[in-house]
C-alpha cells in the first residue's frame, strides 16, 4: 500500500490525487505501526498513530487551503500546468 502511495505521487498529475496518495502512504505507516505495536505489546506505536492522524488532519487542512488558493490564481490543479513545478 505504501508503494501504491508512492506510485500515485509519482504518476498522477492531479494535485488532489497526489495528495490522496500521500494520505494512503501515511495510512500504510499507521497500519504497520499498529501491527508492530500489537506484536511487541508496546503502546508507543499506537500513540504514534494518533500523532500521525493529527498531522494528517493538519496537513489536509493546509494542503487543501493551498490548493484552493492556487486554484483561485490559476484555475488549475494539474501540476503539469504549473510552470515552476518542474520536478
Amino acid at each position: 500500500m505504501f508503494c501504491c502511495g508512492v506510485l500515485g505521487v509519482v504518476v498522477r498529475r492531479n494535485a488532489i490525487v497526489i495528495f490522496m496518495s500521500i494520505e494512503l502512504m501515511l495510512n500504510a505507516v499507521n497500519l504497520s505501526l499498529v501491527a508492530f505495536s500489537s506484536f511487541l505489546g508496546d503502546s508507543t506505536g499506537q500513540m504514534l498513530v494518533f500523532f500521525v492522524m493529527v498531522v494528517a488532519a493538519a496537513e489536509a487542512a493546509i494542503g487543501l487551503a493551498i490548493i484552493i488558493a492556487l486554484f483561485r490564481n490559476k484555475q488549475t490543479v494539474y501540476v503539469d500546468e504549473i510552470n515552476i513545478l518542474k520536478w
Binding site: 500523532f51 493538519a58 493546509i62 488558493a69 483561485r72
Partner: peptide
Amino acid sequence: ITSFLLLAAIIGAVMLAKK
C-alpha cells in the same frame, strides 16, 4: 505540542483560503 501543530494549521488554512 500537537496543539501548536493544529494551531498553525488553523491559522494557515484560514489565511490562505481567505479571499
